[in-house]
Design a protein around this nucleic acid. Sequence first.
RNA 1: GCACCCGUAGCUCAGUGGAUUAGAGCAUCUGGCUACGAACCAGAAGGCCGGGGGUUCGAAUCCCUCCGGGUGUACCA
Length: 589
Amino acid sequence: MASLTQYLTQLFQQTLTELGADPSYGQVIPSNRPDLGQFQANGALAAAKSLKRNPRELAQAILDTLPQKEIFADLSIAGPGFINIRLTDQFLRQQTQHVHDDIRLGLKKVARPRNVLVDYGGYNVAKVLHAGHLRPTIIGEAIRRTFVHAGDHVLGDVHLGDWGLQMGQLIEEIRLRQPDLPYFDPGHTSPYPDDSPVTMDDLLTLYPQASARAKEDEAFAAAARQATYDLQHNHPGYRALWQHFVNVSIRDIKRHLALLETEFDYWLGESDAEPYLLPMIEQLKRDGFAYESQGALVMDVTDPSDKKEMPPLILVKRDGAVLYGTTDLATIAMRVEKFNSEFIIYVVDIRQAMHFKQVFRAAHKSGIAPHVELEHAGFGTINGPDGRPFKSRSGENVTLGEILQMALEKAAERVAEIDNEEAPYTPEERATIARYVGMATIKFADLMNHRSSDYILDMERFSAFEGKTGPYLLYSTVRAKSILRKAAAANLTPGPIVTPTTDVERELLLKLGEWPDMFWQAYHERAPNHLCEYAYLVATAFNRFYRECHILREPDPARQTGWLALTDLTRRMLEQVMTLLNITIPERM
RNA sequence: GCACCCGUAGCUCAGUGGAUUAGAGCAUCUGGCUACGAACCAGAAGGCCGGGGGUUCGAAUCCCUCCGGGUGUACCA
């Protein structure tokens, strides 16, 4: 089962092969001139050039040779050799029925599933979840779901920031304040307490103080470095204390993620790459990749194709500590060994492009992961109205919780303005709807633009019920559900899809037949914005159909039940796309 | 300095491997509810795709150059 364009492309490719041309010229796409046709094939021009033939003549030859003429309502040549295509209504009906009958809505799975690991989230232990964590969470989750749906073997790993110098600073800061804690007692032998000596709030105030202290107090800084070293070498007390930091932080992160409905397969962090670190560095030295430069241990990652100098990757600093490039490299080694990863996608801020380029090159050329595909799916920043990275009115950084709160409050305002006359909402239901609407608002807005571009946070615009927004999509889907509910109550059951007789029907059928094309584009580009666009186009096509074809009042039974089936198919399609976007749809709103 | 990204309608942004007349939403204007939810739908208006050059039968898209903006650039993550 293929999309309409895939089906047509096959026919054209077959024809081109028969005519002695390269089949790659057979690509058929939805028409950008709907007045002239539903689809277009433009390959005749390029194919004619390669064959040194007249393009119009070749186009005519293609039409003459094309098989399955019965599915075409119209085939014509325009201009220098463009082929415009229109399908018969019968064929359209038949194809839509196939999509309807397919649990996957016409989408095949990848021929050879790969072990894909999506690295997203990237939260830090003991640090506040801020505005910058919204996009990796939302985009990463959408990409992860897209790959799962494609049929790959996918793991989502949060890659917690849990292993740097900040951990040592925190340990020393706590020692200053509570020196009598058992974690600092070298003679302590019994098990350490189960309860954390610090809360998340404590960590959030302690961390900035610790890093400030480290800057002005050299003795403290040195102690922090030592504590970091000891921690990383399994000092039992520090390790126990650190585990509390991690646990307390993960609990806080999960609280936020519950609202965003995001879950990870693995809660691994930088610390989990630790066992791989020293052996890897030793290996790199042995193999001649790592060498000493200006007191640091570095690795050359230049490439002859470089237009500009590429700085070496620093593995070990002058003071003996490792950097995040080193742990990233070790993490790749771990993922290859533990998960047999074949493809790793990093959903991380686009400003780290250079860093990943270095790490990926190092992984490839050193033999750590020579054949693993590594990709940085970078994303842009969320900006304020001034076009600068989003800050609060007083100029402070905004937390993730605050942004989510803004979305929820705006949604609650909107939901307060509406009502359902047939079955008025209870306050509880209203609150639930506001939560759905709020999350759809922020997620759709974040995913709608291409991930690599920045966008301006405008909750007023994002939360609007009209226009290209999350709430509009929820509304459209809920409306389809409402019809189906009413039909069921009247003992009407969906029947076979009927042959379309109006343009609104044809357009909806054509749109529903595009799903595989849109899906694979989103998959290959790791670009959920294509899914957003598709959901919007399906919703508007359905709303036009809904307006013109009055389902529940339709007197012809075959047509009525056929339209119900079409409504149900639309509903399933919207739910499918929204599921990939991790947007949940309420029953009514 | 250098590298990367960007500059498309008043605003916010899409534009897939070059292809017939460049799209959407908002805002503006005009229509449509005794009709399955008008949170909707239909229509109008709005652009020398930053400037210039080049390649081509054809360029928002590829190449060069200039202007304007963003980001990154050896021991933070």
